[in-house]
C-alpha cells in the first residue's frame, strides 16, 4: 500500500449553529484519486476550504506528511504542496492565461522578493524555465490555451476556464491536488475528456494524490479509486464505486436531493 499523504481525522466544522462537516475522517494515499461525493450542501466544498486553510476547523485535525496543518494560513499550506481549484472558478481575470499559471508557480521560487527585484539574471533564467513548464502543462489540458498564452483569462469560455484553473494548481508540482467539481457545467464528452486528462496526471506526476469532489456520481465512476460519500456533513458510506453506489443510504440521499431539486 502506498503511503498516506493527507488525512483528516474526526474533522468538524461549524458555522455558528450549522454543522457543515460532522466528524468526518478520510485518508488520501499517494497515487490515489479519492472521490468525495454527496448531494448539494453536503459539506464537500467546506472540506476543501478547511484543508486549504481558508477556515480553521472547529475540531479534529488535518495531517499532511505527518504534520498537523490545521490553523496554518492558506499560503503556507499551498507552499507545503497542497493546491486546489474552486467550484466557482476563481481565475485572475484581467491578466493573461500565462500569467495565471505563473502565479500558480509562486511557491516554487527559491528566490525571495528581494531576489526577484535585484537578481535579474537568475530570475530571467527561472522565468524562462517557468514559461516552458507552463506551456507544457497548458498543452496537456488544452492546446488552445498553450497557443493563446496572452489571452486574457476573463475572455475564456467556461470549459477553458476550468482547465486553466487546474493548470494553475498543478503548476507548482503539488503533492496533493484538490479538485472541486472540475467537470461542472461541461457536457458529457468534455467531462469524460477532462477525467482522462486527470487520470494522466497521476501517471506523469508520480506520487501525487488527488481528491476529486463531484456532485454527479457518474463522473467519478471511472476516475476515483476510492469513494467517501457524505450527506449533511456526515459520512454515510465509503468504498469502491460499486460498493457505495449499491448502498441504500447513498441512493436515498441522492433521491432525496433529486426530489428537492425538482
Amino acid at each position: 500500500m502506498a503511503e498516506i499523504c493527507l488525512s483528516a481525522n474526526n474533522l468538524t466544522m461549524k458555522f455558528g449553529g450549522l454543522v457543515a462537516i460532522d466528524n468526518v475522517s478520510w485518508a488520501l494515499h499517494q497515487n490515489e484519486i479519492l472521490g468525495i461525493i454527496g448531494p448539494n450542501g453536503a459539506g464537500k466544498t467546506t472540506i476543501f476550504n478547511v484543508v486549504s486553510g481558508l477556515y480553521t476547523p472547529t475540531s479534529g485535525e488535518i495531517v499532511f506528511k505527518s504534520n498537523i496543518i490545521n490553523g496554518l494560513p492558506p499560503y503556507k499550506i499551498a507552499k507545503m504542496g497542497i493546491k486546489r481549484t474552486f467550484q466557482q472558478s476563481r481565475l485572475f481575470d484581467n491578466i493573461s492565461v500565462l500569467d495565471n499559471v505563473l502565479v500558480g508557480m509562486a511557491t516554487l521560487s527559491k528566490g525571495t522578493l528581494v531576489n526577484s527585484l535585484f537578481r535579474r539574471k537568475r530570475m530571467a533564467k527561472e522565468l524562462d524555465e517557468n514559461i516552458q513548464k507552463s506551456l507544457g502543462i497548458l498543452n496537456h489540458f488544452s492546446p488552445f490555451l498553450a497557443e493563446n498564452p496572452y489571452r486574457k483569462a476573463g475572455d475564456l469560455v467556461p470549459g477553458e476556464r476550468r482547465k486553466l484553473e487546474i493548470c494553475r494548481a498543478l503548476a507548482s508540482d503539488p503533492d496533493v491536488l484538490l479538485l472541486d467539481e472540475p467537470a461542472a457545467g461541461m457536457d458529457p464528452n468534455e467531462s469524460a475528456e477532462l477525467m482522462e486528462d486527470i487520470l494522466k496526471i497521476r501517471d506523469i506526476r508520480k506520487g501525487i494524490g488527488i481528491i476529486l469532489i463531484e456532485h454527479d456520481m457518474a463522473v467519478v465512476q471511472k476516475t476515483a479509486d476510492y469513494i467517501v460519500v457524505i450527506s449533511y456533513g456526515k459520512e454515510i458510506a465509503r468504498g469502491s464505486f460499486a460498493e457505495v453506489s449499491s448502498n441504500p443510504l447513498v441512493q436515498e440521499a441522492y433521491l432525496g436531493s433529486e426530489n428537492e431539486n425538482a
Binding site: 458555522f15 455558528g16 466544498t45 476550504n49 481558508l54 477556515y55 474552486f86
Partner: peptide, 8 residues
C-alpha cells in the same frame, strides 16, 4: 457582529 466565514 458574529465572526463571518467568507464564502468561497
Amino acid at each position: 457582529g458574529e465572526k463571518i466565514f467568507e464564502k468561497v
